[in-house]
Amino acid sequence: MPLSGEAIRMMNYVDDVATTLRRIQALIPTLTAEERQRVSEYLGKSAPSAQDVLTALQAK
């Protein structure tokens, strides 16, 4: 079954998020321990999380 335009757009969003996370991951070694902690806390509080979205997609 072919995908709708909306599904394709959402998959492109996932690609964009993955690209952003790769960029963040590449820069982690440049951060101080305090900066890593602050970014970690900020990411942890981000809503919705990737897991939240995955759970919603898998819900029946």
Rank of each mutant, 00 (worst) to 15 (best):
T20A: 09
E34H: 15
E35T: 13
D15N: 06
A50T: 15
V53E: 03
G44S: 03
A47C: 09
L21Q: 08
L54C: 11
P48T: 00
D52Y: 05
T20Q: 07
D52K: 03
T20Y: 05
E41G: 05
Q37N: 09
L54A: 06
L21G: 01
Q58E: 11
T32L: 03
V17C: 10
R36I: 05
D52P: 01
Q51I: 14
Q25N: 12
L54D: 12
E41V: 03
E34W: 02
D16T: 12
D15A: 14
L54G: 08
V17S: 13
A47E: 13
L21M: 06
Q58F: 07
P29Q: 04
R38P: 00
T32A: 04
I24K: 01
T32I: 06
Q51G: 07
T20D: 01
V14W: 10
D15C: 08
A33D: 15
A33M: 07
R36P: 01
L43M: 13
D52V: 01
P29V: 09
K45A: 06
L57H: 12
K45P: 01
Q51A: 14
I28W: 06
Q25G: 15
S49M: 06
E35L: 09
V14Y: 14
G44E: 06
T55M: 08
L31Y: 00
P29A: 04
Q25M: 12
L57Y: 12
S49I: 10
Q37P: 00
S49C: 11
R38T: 05
V39P: 00
G44R: 02
L57C: 12
R23N: 15
A50Q: 15
K45D: 02
I28D: 11
L21H: 04
V17M: 09
V53P: 00
L21I: 10
E34P: 01
E34L: 05
G44V: 02
A47I: 04
A18L: 13
A56G: 05
S49R: 08
T19F: 02
V53T: 08
D16A: 12
S40D: 15
L31P: 02
E41Q: 11
A33K: 15
T55G: 05
V17D: 04
L43S: 04
V17W: 08
S49Q: 13
R38H: 08
K45Y: 03
A26G: 15
E41N: 11
A47N: 14
R23V: 08
A33G: 10
Y42L: 07
Q58H: 14
A18P: 00
R38F: 00
T30N: 06
L43C: 12
Q51L: 14
Y42S: 02
A26M: 10
L21Y: 06
T30C: 00
S46F: 15
P48N: 15
L27Y: 03
S49W: 00
R36F: 02
D52F: 03
G44L: 01
A33R: 14
D15S: 11
T30A: 04
G44A: 05
L27G: 05
T32K: 11
L54N: 07
Y42P: 02
Q37L: 05
R36V: 01
R38W: 02
Y42H: 05
T55D: 12
R22P: 00
V14F: 10
A56W: 14
P29H: 07
T20K: 02
Q58N: 08
E35W: 03
L43E: 03
G44D: 12
G44Y: 02
D16M: 13
Q51T: 09
Q51M: 09
R36Q: 11
A18Q: 06
A50R: 09
S49Y: 05
I24D: 03
E35H: 07
